[in-house]
């Protein structure tokens, strides 16, 4: 007890910078957003009146929120599993002692150097319908690339954004899984080999279980990114095609330029808090789902 009190002054001094910053820029705005969620304000968001906490329910049940929730979930289901499988595939492919393998590893991790803005704009250039390179090369087989363009078609817009996002995350996924693979002790493989396990059996019985911590980490990060993706939507489709709002996910419903709640800080805050709860629920689910199967020993 005495020790605790003696350490208190230096501890406070050392914690103040971080604690202060987090309070002002994370905790305070969160509380404030929760509060705004039950208010209606004027165009400058200055004069507000109370409209009741059940506002959260009506926002949640509104058509627009439900639609964007479905877009968010679809986007997550497209990007996370495919991103994971591709990342694992690349890592397994590159986890061999071959001459020049380092070059391939650098190439596979290269997209980690692209930001959301750069990656999205790269695909924006590639997918441009009348002059883009993909339309130019492939539109004979895939006419949608040109008319109306992958990003302009209600059916293909979300998968196209997902493609850009998967590509952008590939480098990150590859690096993590690669590191996970390299920490698998070689003798485990050898004993499996002695037991006569084929390469597929070795992968499912030895590699995958040893990779679970990495896979859990990657899937949590990818899911968070997918649920919070704003930049790629803003740069590629602006939530469109507008006929179906096929890419208006929750962040875009909140922050998009052409959103019906654009100037309504109350509804925006309510939707943002709901997004926060959704992220929490997903994180909890993933930790529970993987939790039992994560293999930490080595």
């Amino acid at each position: 007890m005495k020790r605790k009190l003696r350490d208190l002054p230096p501890a406070l001094l050392m914690l103040v910078p971080s604690l202060g910053l987090l309070t002002v820029w994370v905790i305070y705005p969160l509380i404030k957003a929760i509060d705004y969620g039950h208010k209606k304000c004027d165009i400058s968001s200055r004069n507000c009146r109370d409209v009741g906490w059940d506002r959260y329910f009506s926002v949640f049940q509104s058509t627009q929120f439900q639609d964007s929730l479905i877009v968010s979930l679809k986007f997550t289901l497209m990007t996370v599993p495919i991103g994971l499988v591709l990342g694992i595939g690349l890592a397994v492919l590159a986890d061999k002692h071959l001459k020049g393998i380092g070059i391939f590893r650098t190439i596979f991790s290269s997209t980690v150097a692209t930001s959301v803005a750069v990656a999205s704009l790269v695909w924006f250039v590639l997918l441009q319908p009348s002059r883009g390179i993909l339309a130019d090369m492939l539109s004979d087989w895939f006419p949608v690339l040109k008319n109306p363009g992958l990003l302009n078609d209600s059916g293909t817009a979300l998968p196209a954004v997902a493609l850009s996002s998967i590509w952008a995350s590939l480098g990150f996924t590859f690096i993590i899984i690669m590191a996970g693979l390299q920490s698998v002790p070689r003798d485990l493989y050898e004993s499996a080999f002695v037991d006569g396990a084929g390469s597929f059996r070795r992968f499912t019985n030895v590699t995958l279980p040893m990779l679970t911590p990495s896979i859990l980490f990657v899937s949590v990060v990818l899911t968070t990114r997918a649920l919070q993706s704003y930049g790629e939507i803003d740069l590629l489709t602006q939530g469109g095609p507008q006929a179906t709002k096929a890419t208006t996910n929750i962040p875009y419903l909140i922050y998009g330029n052409n959103s019906v709640i654009h100037n309504d800080i109350g509804t925006k805050s309510a939707a943002a808090v709901l997004l926060f709860l959704l992220c929490l629920a997903f994180a909890a689910l993933q930790f529970r789902g993987f939790g039992k199967r994560v293999h930490y020993g080595n």
């Binding site: 957003a33 705004y36 968070t224 919070q228 909140i254 805050s269 943002a272 808090v273």
Partner: peptide, 8 residues
């Protein structure tokens, strides 16, 4: 998420 705090 940053999306929640940015407005405030």
């Amino acid at each position: 998420p940053a999306e929640v705090t940015v407005v405030i």
